[in-house]
Simulated scan of single mutants.
Amino acid sequence: MKLDDEVVRNLAVAKLFRENTGKINSIDYSSDGLNMISSSDDDSVIIYDCQTGTKKRSVNSKKYGVDLIHFTHAKNTAVHCSTKVDDTIRYLSLHDNKYIRYFPGHTKKVVTLCMSPLDDMFLSGSLDKTIRLWDLRSQNCQGLMHVPGRPVAGFDPEGLIFAAGINSESVKLYDLRSFDKGPFNTFKLQRENDCDWTCLKFSPDGKTILLATNGAVIRLVDAFSGNVTYSLQGHTNNKGIALEASFSPDSNYVFSGSTDGQIYGWSSESGRLVATLPSEHNPVIQCVQFNPKYMMLATACNHMAFWIPQGLED
């Protein structure tokens, strides 16, 4: 089945999970698309089976809290940042709910965390105005960059380049092998008037950089020229919340939540709004991601919804 406008408009909730007592603050798929993980303000981590549409397991991080959770390349481990005690990043074994390693260094809230698609490297960015590069095998920071404001960061699909969005006005591109020499390209964008960048993602084909905000606009930027190709609008965000936006695996669509309980889907090729999907979310939808391998969208507020095209429910 190929994703097209009709299929996007036909997405419907196939499974709804009411496992959480607090807001789900982040979700992530395993690279094979078979599993999904969520972290919540209620300090719980839940793993879902995407093929059967069932909850597999839950673990807790009551002492440190949990946010920005990501699978590593090993299916039974994840990294996450903390919401209590300190701002250390933690490497968790999901199998026995034990921590494998701690990554100390940030002195304020970590606001961006991403795994390399290639290996055990990962990036973190914090309100302490630093971006750090890490390797899962060592608790020592592999690289440190001081930046002039709140950072967002993301790896390109090849894992060779990363982009850092700084102060909601410039995107800097770094070669991972020589990032200490500084960016090899910088795109200056017009400063957002009434919102900040809260999320940076490359499209799966590597051609576009998505900049989500805590306002009612999502920017799509050409990853080679730095030109803003589209400003996606139509969704509502009247609470200043960091709403996640995500590409479909074919890079042709962008999905976002909103503060009105609806999911919005745009064509990334034309910038037009393709679908507005009503949901049972209540009403702020913070997390939205499309499965990298299967025809499934996941959205989350205090509860989790799995969407598939109507007609596929069987």
Results as ranks from 00 to 15, higher is better:
residue 4 D to V: 07
residue 7 V to A: 07
residue 8 V to I: 14
residue 9 R to A: 10
residue 16 L to R: 13
residue 22 G to R: 13
residue 34 L to A: 11
residue 36 M to Q: 03
residue 38 S to L: 05
residue 42 D to A: 14
residue 60 N to P: 05
residue 62 K to R: 14
residue 66 V to E: 02
residue 77 T to V: 10
residue 79 V to A: 07
residue 81 C to E: 04
residue 82 S to K: 04
residue 83 T to A: 05
residue 84 K to S: 09
residue 85 V to L: 06
residue 86 D to E: 15
residue 90 R to T: 06
residue 93 S to A: 13
residue 100 I to R: 05
residue 105 G to E: 07
residue 109 K to Y: 06
residue 110 V to T: 07
residue 110 V to R: 00
residue 115 M to Q: 13
residue 115 M to A: 06
residue 119 D to A: 10
residue 123 L to A: 10
residue 126 S to L: 04
residue 128 D to Q: 04
residue 129 K to W: 08
residue 131 I to R: 00
residue 133 L to W: 02
residue 134 W to C: 03
residue 136 L to I: 14
residue 140 N to T: 15
residue 140 N to K: 12
residue 142 Q to G: 06
residue 144 L to A: 06
residue 148 P to S: 13
residue 150 R to T: 06
residue 152 V to H: 01
residue 154 G to E: 02
residue 163 A to H: 02
residue 165 G to Q: 05
residue 170 S to K: 11
residue 172 K to Q: 13
residue 172 K to H: 13
residue 174 Y to I: 04
residue 176 L to P: 03
residue 179 F to C: 07
residue 184 F to I: 09
residue 185 N to D: 12
residue 189 L to C: 09
residue 192 E to T: 08
residue 196 D to M: 12
residue 196 D to Y: 14
residue 200 L to Y: 02
residue 200 L to V: 10
residue 203 S to V: 03
residue 205 D to H: 09
residue 206 G to P: 01
residue 214 N to M: 07
residue 217 V to R: 05
residue 217 V to A: 08
residue 220 L to R: 01
residue 225 S to F: 15
residue 230 Y to P: 02
residue 232 L to G: 02
residue 233 Q to A: 12
residue 234 G to R: 03
residue 243 L to N: 00
residue 247 F to L: 04
residue 257 G to H: 02
residue 258 S to K: 02
residue 258 S to L: 06
residue 259 T to D: 12
residue 261 G to D: 15
residue 269 E to W: 07
residue 271 G to M: 10
residue 277 L to E: 03
residue 277 L to T: 12
residue 278 P to F: 07
residue 279 S to F: 06
residue 280 E to V: 12
residue 281 H to Y: 08
residue 285 I to C: 03
residue 287 C to E: 04
residue 288 V to P: 00
residue 290 F to I: 04
residue 292 P to N: 09
residue 294 Y to P: 01
residue 298 A to E: 01
residue 299 T to V: 11
residue 302 N to V: 15
residue 306 F to S: 03
residue 308 I to M: 08
residue 308 I to D: 00
residue 311 G to K: 08
